[in-house]
């Protein structure tokens, strides 16, 4: 299922403004957006099978264990929207910024909309 990044962002903003639905963590590239941790061929093809996520994570300063967990909850059979949101909550503000910058270097934008 395909969503445009703009559409998902609008929906998330409305949810956040209206006092809420579930928190949302999305990644977008070239106008297409995907939920982290969701079972999806598109995100698998673009982010996982290309090796992009591995390279992005390699460029962050996160401890190796955290890199492994992020990959595990995004690109493997253990992918999980809840786990990846929990993981993002676990990151310090500096680690989040570092992660966002690493994604940006590969033309991805990540957005977390809390609820």
């Amino acid at each position: 299922m395909r969503f445009t990044a703009a559409f998902i962002l609008v929906v998330c903003t409305i949810l956040a403004a209206s006092g809420c639905g579930p928190s949302t963590f999305i990644v977008s590239k070239e106008g297409r957006a995907f939920y982290f941790g969701r079972e999806s061929n598109s995100i698998d093809r673009i982010l996982c099978k290309t090796g992009d996520l591995e390279q992005i994570l390699a460029e962050t300063n996160m401890p190796d264990e955290l890199k492994k967990d992020f990959y595990l909850y995004s690109c493997t059979a253990q992918r999980s929207r809840e786990k990846i949101i929990s993981f993002y909550q676990f990151l310090t503000p500096d680690e989040r910024e570092d992660l966002k910058r690493a994604f940006r270097r590969y033309d991805y934008v990540i957005n977390y909309v809390p609820c």
């Binding site: 999980s80 786990k83 929990s86």
Partner: peptide
């Protein structure tokens, strides 16, 4: 936090 209780 993450693995056992998946705190959001």
């Amino acid at each position: 936090f993450v693995k056992k209780y998946t705190v959001l």
